[in-house]
Design a protein around this nucleic acid. Structure first.
Length: 917
RNA sequence: GCCGGGAUGGCGGAACGGUAGACGCGACGGACUCAAAAUCCGUUGUCCGAAAGGGCGUGUGGGUUCGAAUCCCACUCCCGGUACCA
């Protein structure tokens, strides 16, 4: 009976559904395990990246189930977002139509993948029954003072009169029209995430990868220092945050962000034109560009002055784009002698540089000889009350000069100790249609009111017209816009929608009771399942999504939204203390599957040169063509629609291929067109626009889902990812073919012997231990490799019949059980075909017996000066003396010793002895 | 720019500071076959050597150590994030 993956996978998909094998229900008598993997955006079909993320997570959930846990492993869809609107605009498909069709395809894909998702717990974020609660949470946050209306800049396209996503802006221009984009300030909604900045720095009790914690810690960016109040000449207060208040006496100018509110009043009439021009230029730059330290410093003098509160010095106020309004107070005091960026700025514009630290034991700093800012330790000079105090490189109060300055500032009411965070409040407004409406109405007075609970959700209207204008169609949907406030007075609805990160900040709660109409989640379910025990997802989410969801959990806790859950926990004897501080206890991230590298076609182009490019009338694919065979000859390195970039020798030639041109591709029969020309692909992220997508459906059809799962888990270090290789998959299929044969062929014990049987049992129990360890640690590739190793051994035993039947059966059934989480279909079929009762997936995990796994003899390496010179078989429990004797007895070692005594011997029995001569 | 990660045979990848290259792909040789595919058996880092054996070898340059792919310092290139892609 051959291995027919199509029949088997169909059969078990249906049988499992019919048996309800993957329903997960609260059972207080069993330990729970909430396994969660990031919900996908429904972009179309499942692609290789989804398989790579989800199949191992599914294997992990199955493993935990076999380990005896009651496992909850749900799936849903993060269904609001930009691509649906793009489809609407470009192809005229309505966002919900497009989205729900994609969800149907992807759900079917996950079933074909063999996942153990409990589909009765599915949650879809664009469904009104879901976003009703997103809106409700917004209300709660607003009532708790954690949501507020503020101002923020957006990418504004003056041509389209619309707000663009960062992704839609390429090099300061709109990607579709090529027209410039400017930064524009708008009133928008925020969550006060900075209130939780300090708590978010704490990872106690969390098993999260160090790099993720580091990135989040850096993202939050805590710095200690002081707030110091300067005054303008008009008497306006101008507060700055500084980490080096001790250098206040060296502040020779101030720099404000160009958007700072005091810029206009500070600017003198002669500087007004220049300042206005600079502000406009800044509006065209992105934040990343502004922060590039390598760039030449730019800036403009406002003409205004400020008074330094420590010495009443009158210092000029400049504006420069390297100061951001979003960090600190949007203004800095500049100490060019001791800050490199300020130093460069001062040199660029000829501003005063005044050293206030003298390095210890070095020549004193002197102007104008300084070539860079001095940031080392020393003694404070020319600094009024703190002159003579030592300074080191410590931050905050640990630095004596800073501590002294803070004390002085506070005593004299000129400033105070302060902590500043780089992290900003969470901007949740999106000027988009395809998102959850923000449940707010605006009265004629300009005041706003929240929509009452009984009117939630504010439903997103279906009848919108994307063609009528550009941007958010809610802006001119009269039926949506016009409403009344609580007094029955006319009011206008908020047309901004919620950031989709908000939907994904609480979805783990909705899975607990997706149909609940009374609350976002059922406290009785939550009491059992929360918190998430294992979370998996892409490393690209390390800062944004993972910080947002941590913030959200803490906010919910503080708003008392877990109180009922805690109560239910107590009823069941579970201590709720600390269980609502963090959403996910353990997190692991997987890498990305990149596209397969591919050479482009070598083409011969004939046509005419025109405006620096070639307009082709004939393009012929010819791998052996050389220079001179046509107007342009070479590999296609890039193709965008009908424009080719051809690498003709050193030069890249742009070739336009009009409809009238002839395209000849010898490998493809019939009439050819420009779309069939292959261009060079680098190893890079798979995406439709790059044309390097590998469709898993084709592979499932050809090899089966089990093979695709096994291959994806085998071929990469899961946390790293790597480029797709279409050839390697046959190895995974061969492995499953071999497993099939081993489990279905009658074993003939022709010449059983005790030693071979014990040796096989040793390997089986070593493999059990290895796979157990690897699966616990998400090391899928080495787990599969260990199973392949067992396969190899069983194949050789099948040939010589050297073990007794019991040892054989134990080995084969161990192989099936250990493989079950990875390849659920074939193992289920084989398990039952061998006459076992019940599903392989509800069996107990085959635990290793340490005694049976213990190795009796070991190959000991004998090194001379760290180089391997001999190997000897020794008992695994060999003593150190004995190991050294055995090593010294080696003839090979003796030739290196040349009769002398070793200088030193390092013994690490039973693996190694190193003899130094 | 800034933050985080990575680099090991022809390829994907293994290796508690202790035998570098497990496992797989590919390639090569052989068996089976009229032949091919599939399958099975074997070889496969590289150089010198008939062999025994030896030299070299984990992105680059230095360092620590009896011993470094692994730890430290400096660099190069690649990937992810950079707050409106999700």
């Amino acid at each position: 009976m051959p291995y027919d993956h199509r029949a088997i996978e169909q059969k078990w998909q249906q049988q499992w559904a019919a048996d309800g094998l993957y329903r997960s229900r609260v059972d207080w008598d069993k330990p729970k395990h909430y396994a969660l993997t990031m919900l996908p955006y429904p972009s179309g079909e499942l692609h290789m990246g989804h398989w790579y993320a989800v199949a191992p997570s599914d294997a992990r959930a199955r493993y935990m189930r076999m380990k005896g846990y009651n496992v909850l492993f749900p799936m849903g869809f993060d269904a609001f977002g930009l691509p649906a609107e793009n489809a609407a605009i470009q192809r005229g498909i309505h966002p919900p139509t497009w989205t729900y069709a994609n969800i149907d395809r992807m759900r079917a894909g996950f079933k074909a993948m063999g996942t153990m998702f409990d589909w009765e717990r599915e949650a879809v974020s664009c469904d009104p029954s879901y976003y009703r609660w997103s809106q409700w949470f917004f209300k709660k946050l607003l009532e708790a003072g954690l949501a507020y209306r503020g101002e923020a800049v957006v990418n504004w396209s003056p041509t389209l009169q619309t707000v663009l996503a960062n992704e839609q802006v390429i090099d300061g221009k709109d990607e579709r029209t090529g027209q410039p984009v400017v930064q524009k300030t708008m009133a928008q909604w925020f969550y006060a995430m900075t209130k939780y900045a300090q708590e978010l720095l704490n990872y106690d009790g969390l098993d999260w990868p160090d790099p993720v914690r580091l990135m989040q810690t850096n993202w939050i960016g805590r710095s200690e220092g002081a707030d110091v109040v300067f005054t303008t000449e008009h008497g306006d207060e101008l507060e700055v945050f500084t980490t080096r208040p001790d250098t206040l006496w060296g502040a020779t100018f101030m720099v404000l962000a160009p958007e700072h509110p005091l810029v206009d009043s500070l600017t003198t009439d002669d500087q007004r034109a220049e300042v206005a021009a600079y502000k406009e230029a800044t509006a065209r730059r992105s934040e990343v560009e502004r922060m590039e330290a390598e760039r030449d410093k730019t800036g403009v003098f406002t003409g205004g002055y400020a008074i330094n509160p420590v010495n009443d010095a009158r210092i000029p106020v400049w504006i420069a784009d390297y100061v951001l309004l979003t960090y600190g107070s949007g203004a800095i005091m500049a100490v060019p002698a001791h800050d490199q960026r300020d130093f460069e700025f001062a040199r660029q514009f000829g501003l005063t540089i005044a050293p206030v630290i003298q390095p210890s034991g070095e020549a004193p700093l002197q102007e104008p000889e300084m070539t860079e800012a001095y940031v080392g330790p020393g003694t404070m000079v020319d600094s009024g009350p703190i002159t003579g105090i030592e300074t080191n490189t410590e931050k905050g109060r640990k630095n004596p000069s800073i501590a002294a300055t803070i004390d002085w500032l506070e005593e004299n009411s000129r400033g105070r100790e302060a902590v500043n965070y780089r992290v900003r409040d969470w901007l949740i407004s999106r000027q988009r249609y395809w998102g959850s409406p923000i449940p707010v109405v605006y009265q004629d007075s300009g005041d706003y009111e929240v929509v009452p609970d009984e009117d939630l959700p504010v439903v997103l209207p279906d009848d919108v017209d994307f063609q009528q204008g550009s941007g958010n169609p809610l802006n001119w949907h009269e039926g949506f816009l016009n409403t009344v406030d609580s007094e029955g007075e006319p009011a206008r609805r908020e047309t901004d929608t919620l950031d989709t990160f908000m939907c994904s900040s609480w979805y783990q709660l909705r899975y607990l009771s997706p149909d609940n109409e009374d609350a976002p989640f059922d406290p009785d379910e939550a009491a059992y399942w929360l918190p998430v025990d294992v979370y998996t997802g892409g490393s690209e989410h390390a800062t944004l999504h993972l910080l947002y969801t941590r913030f959200f959990t803490k906010a919910l806790r503080d708003m008392g939204l877990y109180d009922d859950t805690a109560e239910a926990m107590r009823r069941h004897g579970r201590d709720p203390d600390g269980l609502f501080d963090e959403p996910m206890l353990l997190y692991r991230s997987q890498g990305q599957i990149l596209g397969e590298e591919r050479a482009g076609d070598t083409v011969v182009v004939d046509g005419v040169r025109q405006d620096g490019r070639v307009v082709a009338d004939r393009v012929t694919v010819n791998p052996s063509a050389g220079p001179g065979d046509g107007l342009a000859v070479g590999e296609i390195v890039r193709r965008t629609e009908n424009v080719l970039q051809v690498a003709a020798g050193e030069e890249i030639v742009t070739v336009e291929v009009p409809d009238t041109a002839t395209v000849e591709i010898p490998g493809i029969p019939g009439e050819n067109d420009v779309n069939q020309l292959k261009h060079h692909l680098e190893v890079q992220r798979m995406s439709k626009s790059r044309g390097n997508v590998v469709d898993p459906n084709d592979l499932v059809e050809q090899y089966g889902a089990d093979t695709v799962r096994t291959y994806l888990m085998f071929a990469y270090d899961w946390e790293k990812g790597g480029p797709w290789d279409s050839r390697g998959i046959v190895g995974a299929r061969r492995f499953l073919d071999d497993v099939w044969k081993l489990a279905t062929t009658e074993y003939a014990a022709d010449s059983p012997d005790g030693e071979s049987s014990a040796s096989l049992r040793r390997l089986v129990h070593q493999t059990r231990a290895k796979v157990d360890r690897d699966m616990a640690a998400f090391k899928w590739n080495t787990a599969v490799a260990a199973l392949m190793g067992l396969r190899n051994e069983l194949q050789s035993i099948a040939r010589d019949g050297s073990v007794d039947p019991d040892a054989w059966t134990e080995a084969v059934e161990s192989l099936l059980l250990l493989l079950a989480p990875i390849a659920p279909f074939i193992t289920e079929e084989l398990w039952r075909a061998r006459g076992n009762d019940g599903s392989v997936h509800v069996q107990s995990w085959p635990e290793a017996d340490a005694d049976l796994a213990r190795e009796l003899s070991v190959t000991m390496v004998v090194q001379v000066n760290g180089k391997v010179r001999d190997r000897v078989e020794v008992p695994a429990d060999i003593a150190e003396d004995e190991a050294i004797d055995r090593a010294m007895a080696s003839e090979r070692v003796q030739t290196y010793l040349e009769g002398g005594e070793p200088k030193k011997v390092i013994a690490r029995p039973p693996k190694l002895v190193n003899i130094v001569v």
